[in-house]
């Protein structure tokens, strides 16, 4: 398992309740969602046709892709609709001093390059 690093991303109020926002960290295109009582993060790419999940409508703890309404669990990354094995990556989150933090895997290649 690769190592994670917690990164401070943005102030909480930059993501309105029940909406998502995109952020790029290293090679990771990530969608962060504000669920009111917590933030959840997934890869910002629908496994179907690559739709931007950050632009989807949030329903409970899932998001619905704006392109073809695939429904993806923000907690597990599993696709809930249609029935498929596909899933998206999730990223651990936490909130500290009004700031959203993401745990992003260290990129081995980046390390080599550095």
């Amino acid at each position: 398992m690769s190592e994670h690093r917690w990164l401070r991303i943005t102030e909480c109020h930059n993501i309105p309740p029940r909406e998502g926002r995109a952020v790029t960290v290293g090679r990771h295109d990530i969608a962060i969602f504000n669920l009111g009582d917590r933030f959840l993060a997934t890869a910002n790419r629908c496994p179907h046709r690559g739709g931007p999940l950050c632009d989807g409508i949030v329903t409970g703890t899932s998001v619905v892709c704006p392109l073809h309404t695939w429904k993806i669990s923000l907690e597990s990354g599993a696709v809930e609709r249609p029935r498929t094995e596909a899933c998206v990556r999730t990223y651990p989150t936490r909130v500290e001093n009004g700031m959203v933090l993401l745990a992003v895997p260290m990129d081995p290649r980046a390390e080599h390059a550095a």
């Binding site: 690093r5 990164l7 401070r8 991303i9 943005t10 930059n14 993501i15 926002r21 995109a22 952020v23 790029t24 960290v25 290293g26 962060i32 700031m99 992003v104 260290m106 990129d107 980046a110 390390e111 550095a114």
Partner: peptide, 15 residues
């Protein structure tokens, strides 16, 4: 404020 723009991460170094 972030209606149209992606977030710019405060920290963005994975090295």
């Amino acid at each position: 404020p972030t209606q149209f723009i992606p977030l710019h991460p405060v920290e963005n170094t994975l090295a």
